[in-house]
Amino acid sequence: MTATRQQVIGTGLAAAAAFFGLPAIATAADLEEAINTFTSGATTGEGGLTLIAPEIAENGNNVPVEVSAPGAEAIIILASGNPNPNVATFNFGPASGSRMASTRIRLAGAQDVIAIARMEDGSFIQASQSVRVTIGGCGG
């Protein structure tokens, strides 16, 4: 990456691109495979899983994401537009106080962040949030 390009392209897109090296983003098939690996192909329902992520990322390298699903055994986070859609899997143990976790993730551009919870009864629920990663620099 040259300095001249960086001069105007702000912290968001360019910085995330620096970490991943565009343009190798996941294909729809990659995403589907990642989901199937977690769900074993089961259908996913909606409701009962809260996914909190900002509508606009302050920094594509550091996007806070929180997931919460009472009654979940495990929750997976996926980034549909990253080189590898897998982001993190939270497996809750017997001493967990709630079925929530929060972390910070990299996003290589605007995309949907997806969370899927595997519930104690073996069912799956899904939620998603569109996150925009912007060049920025023109507010006021």
Binding site: I56, R132, I135
Partner: peptide, 28 residues
């Protein structure tokens, strides 16, 4: 600095999205 035409287009699109996204939570 030097910018390609494509970079200029990307900048204009990005700023326009910041201002004219119909969902106010996506406006900056």
């Amino acid at each position: 600095t030097e910018m390609t035409g494509e970079t200029l287009r990307m900048i204009l699109e990005d700023v326009a999205e910041n201002i004219f996204n119909p969902d106010p939570y996506y406006q900056s």
